Simulated scan of single mutants.
Amino acid sequence: MSSIYSFLAGKMNTIILICGILLLGLLVGNYILVLGHYNQIKSIMNWKNTKSMINKNTHEVEDKADSEKVTPDSIRELETAFNKTCSWHEAFSQLIPLFPLFGILGTVAGLIMQLSTEDLSTIFSSLHLALGSTFYGLVFAIILKFLDAVGPARTINETEIILEDYDKKVNNAIMLGNISE
Rank of each mutant, 00 (worst) to 15 (best):
G137M: 04
G132N: 02
D148R: 15
F82R: 13
C86G: 02
P152N: 13
G137I: 06
G151S: 02
P100H: 03
W88T: 10
I104Q: 12
A130G: 05
M113A: 10
W88Q: 05
A130Q: 11
S125K: 07
I104K: 03
V139C: 04
L144V: 04
A109S: 14
H89F: 07
M113P: 06
F92V: 14
G103A: 01
G110W: 03
Q94W: 09
K84D: 12
S116L: 06
S133F: 06
M113G: 09
L95V: 04
L147E: 06
S87A: 04
I123G: 08
L105R: 03
P97M: 05
L105W: 03
T85C: 12
E90P: 04
I96L: 06
I142S: 08
L95I: 14
F92E: 14
S126K: 00
A91Q: 08
L131S: 12
S126F: 05
L127T: 11
E90A: 08
G137D: 10
F146Y: 10
A91M: 15
S121P: 03
F102L: 15
D148T: 05
G137C: 12
I112N: 09
Y136P: 09
L95P: 03
P152R: 02
Q114I: 09
L101K: 11
Q114A: 01
A91G: 12
L98G: 01
S93C: 07
L95R: 08
F135D: 10
L127P: 01
Q114V: 04
Q94E: 13
V150H: 13
V108T: 15
W88N: 11
P152S: 12
S121I: 14
A130C: 11
P152W: 00
H128N: 07
P100A: 09
C86D: 07
T107L: 08
G106P: 14
L129E: 11
E118R: 15
G106S: 08
A141R: 01
L98F: 10
L144D: 10
G132H: 02
T107E: 11
F146R: 13
I112E: 11
F146L: 15
V150P: 01
P152M: 04
A109D: 12
L111H: 02
F140Y: 07
